[in-house]
Design a binder for these strands. Sequence first.
RNA 1: GGGCCAUUAGCUCAGCUGGUUAGAGCGCAGUCCUGAUAAGACUGAGGUCUCUGGUUCGAGUCCAGAAUGGCCCA
Length: 1091
Amino acid sequence: MLLSAPEATVFRPVDPKVSFPALEERILQFWKEQRIFEKSIEQRPEDNLFVFYEGPPTANARPGIHHVLSRVFKDLVPRYRTMRGYRVPRKGGWDTHGLPVELEIEKELGLKSKPEIEAYGIAAFNEKCKESVSRYVEEWTRLSERIAFWADYDHPYVTYDNGYIETCWWIFKQLWDAGLVYQDYRSTPHCPRCGTSLSDHEVALGYQDDVPDPSVFVKFRIPGDALADAGYRAAGPLALVAWTTTPWTLPGNVALAVKADAEYGVYELEGEAVILAEALAPKVLGGEPQPAARLRGEQLVGLAYEPLYRPELLGHPVMRFDDDGRLRPLAAGEATDGLRRVIAADYVSLEDGSGIVHIAPAFGGEDFEEGKHYRLLFAQPIDLRGIMAEGLPGAGKFAKQADRDVERDLEERGLLLKKGTIKHTYPFCWRCGTPLLYYAKPSWYLRTTALREQLLAGNERINWYPEHIKHGRFGNWLANNIDWAVSRERYWGTPLPFWRCEACGEAACIGSKAELIERAEDRAAAEALDDLHRPYVDAVTIRCAACGGTARRVPEVADAWFDSGAMPYAQWHFPFEHEAEFRRHFPADFICEAIDQTRGWFYTLHAEATLLKAAGAIPDGIAYKNVICLGHINDEKGNKMSKSRGNTVDPWTVIEKHGADATRWYMYAASPAGMPRRFSAGLVEEGLRRFLLTLWNTYSFFVSYANIDGFRPAGGRVEPAAEIDRWLLSELNALVAKVTAELEEYDPTDAARAIEAFVDDLSNWYVRRSRRRFWRGASEGDADKQSAYETLYAALVTLAKLLAPFTPFVAEELWQNLVRSVDPAAPESVHLAAWPEADASRIDDRLNAETQLIKRLCSLGRAARAKASIKVRQPVAEVVVKLRDAAEAAVVERNRHLVLEELNAKALRLIDDETEVVAYDVKPNLPVLGPKHGQAVGAIRQGLAALDPAEVAAAVRRGRGLAVAGIELEPGDILLQAQDREGYAAAQEAGYTVAVTTAITPELADEGLAREIVRRLQDLRREAGFELADRIRAWVAGDAEVERVVASHAAYISGETLAIELTAGEPPAGAVRAEEDLDGSRTVFGVQRVS
RNA sequence: GGGCCAUUAGCUCAGCUGGUUAGAGCGCAGUCCUGAUAAGACUGAGGUCUCUGGUUCGAGUCCAGAAUGGCCCA
């Protein structure tokens, strides 16, 4: 090999032992200094926008690995779109309001309840909340930058800003005017500790399984002759049996529900009779109880029963639903006798309980609806803290503790038929863990149910990845939509802009600060308002438009999810400012969050857009067109990561060890975006080794040799000289097409895997098989060498571009060193470059398939060699190949040199019949034959043995059966075992046979030894730290055999090792030497650099 | 109770609209190769493709049902 001396170093030398984290730090510095992110936006035309919305995180805790997951997916699409020529602004944002923030501060201040917060002072409390939400902003920004999540954090939107709040007010006003806001008593999930309702999505966060609760069957007495019409008279007491798991709600009981068309039975027990559903009687009473009488549910409807408790007689206020379904307080002294009655309800279950359901409208959703329908009483002798009222069992205790007092009380009064414990799923407060109580109280609602059709129609226009979310989880959620409970009885949030008149009760909605000033009783005070939060806004009263009285703001703040859903408008302070920006940036082309956001941000964005469109306030009814919905990230055992389990992964440790690119690559390549994934640092490392290092080594190889040869890319279209070059360019263009198509479909995973496969081909086939082309001197064919360089160069440069969205750092490194170094006119960064276009004329599917064939044959050849234990360094005389068809012969002929070189063989011969190299042994397939032919197997065995195995084998291989001992055998009845023929070692697969000759002639043995010597010398060169192109003197001292080969193969050995002098004998003192065992004899090797 | 997703080697995952003998990576054992390689090649052990039916000439793939797990909702 003749390597020319380095002429000019074109490319910066590449360290094969690269530290990716250090490399990344350098590139971060470069991006920052050169403002690459800013330029990637500025350089793209303003009228070709691709809109991305950043879902705002709350920066009151450290970011975790799951945030890295969503950020790298969020980052990939904008980078790709930028390279496609779009301008993709990325405004960062912070979500700042809400209960989690308040709870954090409560904990810090040691506050335990709302009265304590109010005693501490709402202003001071909110100030603390405000400080806390930016506590980790720096940490978030630092991590985001480090993983190359490009976003504008210098101008983020912040949900606590007055402007943001004002836009939220504007939205409320639009909906208010459209009749989409209302206040209603509703049964809502209520956290007695936090003192507020929770929205459905919050409730969803806190379900716990296997929660033990009481299971009690309670007797509600009725008169003994109550069933006279049905023909039954009780001798003793008679009672309806109802079942509940919440005894604390029994003081609120105002009705019992039965299923009208179900069968009920009267069962006589010791001294009393009870009524319950026939279907459930065996379960409740045990055995096979026989009813003393039977009746249908409808016959029970209207029966008045004896109340267990009558809070109204204990001085507790009780209300009643009026004809309009509104609650009105009972008049003083108004009698409630006989108002507690049996009603009919469809949902009464005949699978659990007794078939009679206890109804307490104050505490249950369906109960509340029944209350409206039947104009029931409404008794709520438990306050918002969940404390039982005076005079009732468990008075002063928390509801769940009062359960036992209620049970005991009923037991003492003989009203408890049966008690036990069940385990079921029950909701707890997702932040503080307190059991939620369903509690009827007034809340503000957005009438989303009125727009169900629009919500669903809008969803049809959204592309979901993975697709099943669209009609699955998200679609079902929309189809089962209920009105959005949007108020929270809390402090740190967007104040609801509703004012209610103290005099007449009239409510008004204020849609802006200007409107507030306009209507304020004290305009100066309103104008001076520089913080729209509580408590300041609470101080502003307005004049009631209806009666001229004073209206005060309602005490609630908005659900923080409302803020996040307002982001498309509020980030611009629309419509007060930036109207044009809003219009240009709505709706988003792309958003990306994890699957939990189907009920969070995905929903609130969609709901608010739909509501605003219905109110006529915005141009389009969807807020986003494409959405990647990520699966959750679990620990390596598949368990959910959580602080309490202690199995969270700190992203920094992974990034500092393996780098951001490796982490990103893992996220994209390991599993599809929508699937839950198991994360471990080990998997990141695996991707690093398998992919990034392979790429890096190929890059390093190229730069080493290109510098030696002073290669400069010619520019323009590469004209490949060799078939393998044409193949690589074909695969490369196919890759470009594939990656582009996948990214258009928002599927980074298939794209990444395709790149990975290409890099493997590039390194382990193209470079391996082309290596010597890079070594050759100019005299041996400059055109071929140039073609190899151009081809490899083109592949690496294209890879840099394809990888830019995935692994932005290593892509930048390749770009800077391979492109910018030789072309100062090239874009300053790969992230400012144009996305590559696939050249369809380069894609040759047939060539790709043919290369697969050659690789397969080489693989078989290596297997054949291994079988014969002939190492690859030892040349063999001949490789013999049997192909499947004649067309393949031409392919092999064209690639003859590749196969010969790869398999280190002197000759290649194609044969038509593999029986030249293998013989088939024929055996009966006994496990198959046995069941089929039973005792005849013996005869078949003998008959088969008597036949010519070659003929039998030939028949079987053609898929034909044959008759043996008078029995027709099928091909599957006979087993063929190939045996190598004398002098050959063969391997077979799918109709191909590749064999090598096993006889090693003395000449071949000498060549093998020469190659062995070359390898030892090369090792020594490397150990000595010589440069690739250094010339050396070399010595080999061994036995006569070794020295003879050194002499006879001197030219070969010298050429390979760049030795200008090769001596058979001991190396001198100054040489680097090594003693090694060579074919059983001690041999001394020595090398010395020629200066 | 309902919805969605998943189930393929010890682990992580491919397997497209049904089509020869179900693959890869990691890990394990061994052999080999290497002046780009932290790599790579070959071999071995490791699979009733969760199960049961069905459609079909043919099912890991399509259909129905079941089981298990995950997420979500009640």
